[in-house]
Nucleic acid binder design. Structure first.
Lengths: 288, 288
DNA sequence: TTACAGATATACGTTTAACGTATGAGCAGA
DNA sequence: TCTGCTCATACGTTAAACGTATATCTGTAA
């Protein structure tokens, strides 16, 4: 009943929700009516071709999701630990991360637990998490939603790199060597300055001469590989290139501020075991 | 289903729970079996004449109560504000408080909302709240259960009083005048000293010569009224006697440490409206 | 020891609630 | 206008839940 309502709200149509749940359209429609009557409020205003949540429907949706998650967690806590995991797991991740190491981890998790059905959504922009029906939101940097529980998974080391030849390799290199070089920036890049810090805590600001910027980090990486300039890139993205030597660490003693990879989820009283274990797996993978 | 399980656990027999819920004994028994099968765990070990919760049953009970409370709160939040309150409200209160002003407040609340069914339990000793099935626990002083949400309702001013004649009334009286007088103590009374503080913050410890002690505050009050000595009593207990003059404030400038009246309840995501309003009424009554 | 009162679990027929199919009406896009 | 999709309602069917009846067990009192 609650599940049907949530599904209807997510899919935007009663018919689609009914198909999802293996119900007839008539049943889904009736369940929604019943719920509305039981609560004494209209939840969804229906025209024949478009549904929209009422004000009460909005709050009902978020509350219902929490309630369902609580119930899932409740039922699951008694399940035998040895029992295999199963069930849906819908996750939003940053695009670049979700195409590479996070994806590897997720796929490995799915292989280890064949009963799990992963829905892997890539999206860099902030989302209204509660409206997405997702179980987990992986995000680099702050999570702009204080209704969620945020758990840091790992930190991202960011290096100044370029293709060999742009500058000679130099273990003692100082930040000032960057000022005349073209910078390949990941937009939005604000302020035009790159704050760098050394291992001993010294801090230095370097002006960046941006010659290329993109909102796609793979494009920035490719530009760097082609020798177009230097870029600030996370280690996980360029680990292989560093090893191969196709990119080199221009300032081995200096690092751009590290970012935090956070995991955010709805504050249900007891999270499902599959989410708990997925979080653990992801945390281990990102730290290792 | 969950409700049936909780009721069975509370009543200790399936038959009684079935009667409470208006079900046949067979249905209640089957619902319990179904729940156990669904969770895959034995919740209650049954012999023909006695039930006892298993380990899993214990945790299931507390979780189920929270889940049910959440559901109640969920369903209720859409109810029309104008609708009258109804439903059960089971409350544990300290004996003396629950026989006097708190009782007055509770009865007034019940009169204002005839649909409410109050179950008013008086108990001074710490309880295992989650095992009682209560909605609210009113307690003077600390609440020894950190799984609960604690909300201070009011503070209790405590005066040094005695019947007239024990000592002459004296607006400038100093604590030292007590040392030779018999003290009527509420047990447990530990340390043998009464810490007093003046309005200006001055603190003074007075040794108490205990000649009488009781675990019943009404007995202490009565002993004081009979002139047996002085006592430390809360203002709400003796407001009328002070007005009549049958007890007098021996140290008008000094007070024993005040206590806090706390309200504690289970951390459900959304408390029921009746509990919320009762708390407000009780808070107003105790502060006024 | 025996009888009884009160407890639980199961079997079986019945009632009730939920479901699916079918149908009519409404709206969008071709 | 026509087609394809939507939602709501009516109706017959299916499945779940319920109650009655029954067998069994146990603690208590005769």
């Amino acid at each position: 009943m609650l599940e049907t309502f949530v599904r209807i709200a997510e899919r935007g149509t009663i018919s689609a929700a009914a198909r999802d749940l293996g119900l007839s359209q008539a049943s889904a429609s009736r369940q929604l009516s019943d719920l509305e009557q039981r609560l004494g409020v209209d939840l969804i205003t229906r025209t024949t071709h478009a549904l929209s949540l009422t004000k009460a429907g909005e709050t009902c949706l978020t509350e219902a999701r929490l309630l369902l998650a609580d119930w899932d967690g409740f039922a699951e806590q008694f399940a035998d630990e040895a029992e295999s995991l199963s069930g849906p797991l819908k996750i939003v991740a940053p695009i670049a991360l979700g195409q590479t190491i996070a994806l590897d981890c997720a796929v490995a998790f799915q292989n280890a637990h064949p009963g799990i059905v992963l829905d892997w959504i890539l999206e860099d922009r902030p989302i209204r998490f509660s409206e997405t029906g997702c179980d987990l939101w992986i995000r680099i940097g702050d999570v702009p939603d204080d209704t969620l529980i945020v758990q840091p998974l790992s930190t991202v080391e960011r290096l100044i790199v370029a293709a060999p030849g742009l500058l000679p390799e130099d273990a003692q290199a100082e930040p000032e060597r960057l000022v005349d070089q073209p910078c390949l920036a990941l937009s939005p890049f604000e302020g035009g300055r790159i704050p760098l810090s050394a291992q001993d805590g010294t801090v230095r600001d370097v002006a960046a001469k941006v010659s290329f910027s993109s909102n796609d980090i793979f494009a920035v990486k490719r530009a760097a590989l082609s020798g177009a300039g230097y870029a600030v890139l996370p280690r996980w993205l360029i680990a292989q290139e560093l090893e191969e030597g196709s990119l080199i660490d221009l300032l081995p003693d200096w690092r751009a501020p590290s970012l935090t990879i956070n995991a955010a989820y709805a504050p249900s009283r007891r999270q499902t075991r599959r989410l708990r274990l997925f979080l653990k797996a992801m945390s281990d993978a990102l730290k290792g």
